[in-house]
């Protein structure tokens, strides 16, 4: 029973950690789904959004503004920063690259990554900035069945709730709104979408703005968990196997991929890692992703594209 309890605890912890990866992966999916661009800068956007939020919040709290008001204003400020970022990216990077191939756009996002990382630290600082928007302690459930109970981290549960809400909102946005449908049309073919009157520059601004807001949402959870600091950009590397498994175009896929990666890597680390030296979870996620690639290259929920020659 003890062994089963320990396994259950690792499994629950892994699933919840996976949902937090999904929060970052959603930003990738959003931009890829809407513009066909693999946005390498999504991790850097989480960092920028987090820095803008925490630094403005600290600034206001230090000047006596009530915490609740500072949080609201801080979120608004961070959203404005992300909107400005989206506008700059659209105007100076993506705009001139309309109708270029995907690889050029991908390379452009690598450049954007370094600029955001450098500028973000230059403007807001490069320390670790604590953020306390959610509780970070844990529940110990089923204490009567398992000795010491099963540990469930509250911040991870909050992450799960937020990710669920985000998926619902994004699903409605893509399926039920005119802008959402326009985004999908642009993703299929820039030139064709433009020819039927879809304003591509505006659509790209919208999609980068929404990705920025998703990044801000991820930053609230990850910032509370780790403190807002540079290492948040490494979350992008965690999101990659999630995307490969779930599919680059599927919002539910990002969630399912996150669950698989989270649970898989934690179980592997705890039960396999101790026999082969540990520290395996980073690359084990990619083992899972490679296994899925071999069987289903488009990911579990990705669109299967058949191109006729």
């Amino acid at each position: 029973m003890v062994v089963f309890g320990q396994f259950l605890e690792v499994l629950i912890g892994g699933l919840l950690a996976g949902v937090l990866y999904s929060l970052v992966a959603l930003g990738f999916v959003l931009i890829f789904k809407a513009s066909g661009v693999f946005n390498f800068a999504q991790g850097a956007m989480v960092l920028l959004a987090g820095l803008a939020l925490v630094r403005s919040l600290d600034f206001m709290v230090a000047r006596g503004i009530p915490t609740w008001a500072a949080i609201v204003l801080g979120l608004l400020f961070a959203a404005v920063v992300m909107a400005i970022t989206a506008a700059i990216i659209q105007r100076f990077v993506l705009g001139p690259l309309v109708n270029q191939d995907g690889l050029s756009l991908f390379m452009a996002t690598i450049g954007i990554t370094f600029v955001i990382e450098g500028a973000g630290q230059m403007i807001f600082g490069s320390d670790v900035y604590p953020l306390s928007l959610f509780p970070t302690d844990a529940w110990f459930i089923l204490d009567g069945i398992f000795e010491g109970g099963l540990l469930v981290s509250k911040i991870d549960v909050w992450g799960g709730v937020i990710a669920g809400a985000l998926v619902a909102v994004l699903a409605i946005f893509f399926q039920r709104t005119k802008t959402g449908r326009a985004l999908r049309a642009v993703a299929d073919d820039h030139a064709a979408a433009e020819s039927v009157g879809i304003p591509i520059t505006w659509i790209w601004f919208v999609v980068w703005l929404v990705a920025g807001l998703v990044a801000l949402t991820a930053a609230t959870v990850w910032g509370t968990k780790l403190g807002v600091q540079f290492s948040i950009v490494f979350l992008a590397l965690k999101a990659l196997p999630v995307l490969i498994i779930g599919g680059f175009t599927s919002v539910p896929g990002a969630i399912v991929g996150g669950l698989i990666v989270g649970a898989g890597e934690k179980i592997a680390e705890v039960y396999l890692g101790q026999h082969i030296g540990g520290g395996i979870e980073y690359w084990f996620a990619y083992v899972l992703a490679l296994a899925v690639l071999l069987v289903r290259p488009q990911g579990l929920f990705g669109e299967r594209i058949i191109e006729r020659i």
């Binding site: 934690k266 890692g273 979870e281």
Partner: peptide, 8 residues
């Protein structure tokens, strides 16, 4: 930044 497995 990811140490959940270790601490579990």
């Amino acid at each position: 930044v990811e140490q959940k497995s270790q601490w579990l």
